[in-house]
């Protein structure tokens, strides 16, 4: 829909005033991202210059990345399968039903997934694994819940990229005699590979950014194994905000550093997704 080329000649005073105001709005909105980054950077400066505090905090970032990556790993298969199914049979009863289900699931708050991880996934895991060391908090169940959380998001991104893939490619394949499904798997999916990769990165970005799941079901302590409690950045933020944070203490700057890390990580993943999308 092309509407941008409406002529702008003969602007009166109110036109110029309004456009000036809108431009200022856009400027303020843009500056906010930079402002957030700068504030986080300045406030976490005391941490950035001392290696000993960094050493404490970086393992938490590792746990966060691990949770996000495992969540993406668990969510990838179902998301790809669902998007293929929804792409292939968009009108079928099951597809339309799943659309609605995903529509709702995308709006379920993260704290609910956290509750799910804590009260359903963890007991289920300890029953299945028969591992009584799995006392309540661990890294595996937040990862599983994160996987469930990002499935709608990844499915949506993948479905869009499949829709953007070249239609003629598949028709050519079908005219050469391959089945519709083979065409989907061997022609459409490879054509949409960058978009699928972008979907994975978007999911990863969200998986890192989720806070409540890790805070509720992750527990605290040093990372030993997937089945034992380990502190993530989210858990660190929550546990330091329970006490009174006074400026100058390592916890105070640590919270900002944790925010900075989360910001940079999810920013990086989102930027990667954008690059992959443009590559398509």
């Amino acid at each position: 829909m092309e509407f941008r080329k409406v002529p702008r000649s003969g602007d009166g005073f109110s036109d110029r005033l309004a456009s000036r105001f809108l431009a200022i709005c856009a400027g303020v909105s843009v500056s906010l991202l930079g402002a957030i980054f700068l504030v986080l950077l300045v406030r976490s400066f005391p941490i950035l210059v001392s290696w000993s505090s960094l050493e404490v905090l970086l393992p938490y970032a590792g746990v966060t990345i691990l949770t996000g990556a495992l969540g993406t790993f668990f969510g990838f298969g179902p998301a790809l399968g669902l998007s293929l199914y929804l792409f292939e049979y968009p009108q079928s009863l099951f597809a339309r039903f799943m659309m609605r289900v995903l529509h709702i699931a995308a709006r379920v708050p993260t704290v609910v997934y956290g509750f799910f991880a804590l009260t359903v996934v963890t007991p289920l895991l300890s029953t299945i694994l028969g591992d009584y060391r799995l006392l309540g908090y661990n890294t595996l169940s937040p990862s599983l819940a994160t996987g469930l959380l990002i499935i709608p998001l990844m499915t949506k991104a993948m479905l869009e990229s499949l829709g953007r893939a070249d239609r003629n490619l598949r028709l050519t394949g079908m005219s050469l005699g391959i089945s519709s499904f083979t065409g989907l798997v061997t022609l459409v999916v490879p054509a949409a590979r960058w978009g699928i990769g972008a979907g994975v990165l978007i999911g990863f970005s969200r998986g890192i950014g989720q806070t409540m799941i890790s805070a509720l079901a992750g527990g605290s302590g040093e990372f030993v194994s997937l089945l034992q409690p380990a502190q993530s950045l989210a858990g660190f933020i929550v546990s330091s905000s329970t006490g009174v944070l006074s400026p100058g203490t390592p916890e105070y700057s640590g919270v900002f550093f944790a925010g900075l890390l989360l910001f940079t990580l999810s920013f990086g993943a989102a930027a990667g997704a954008k690059i992959l999308e443009n590559k398509e």
Binding site: S29, L32, L33, A35, I36, V39, L40, I202, S205, R206, I208, G209, Q210, T211, A234, I237, V255, F256, A258, G259, L262, F263, S266, F267, A270, A271
Partner: peptide
């Protein structure tokens, strides 16, 4: 990118 910022960061800000 602003839409992709983790919500907890807004709280810290």
């Amino acid at each position: 990118f602003l839409a992709g910022v983790p919500p907890v960061v807004f709280g810290i800000f």
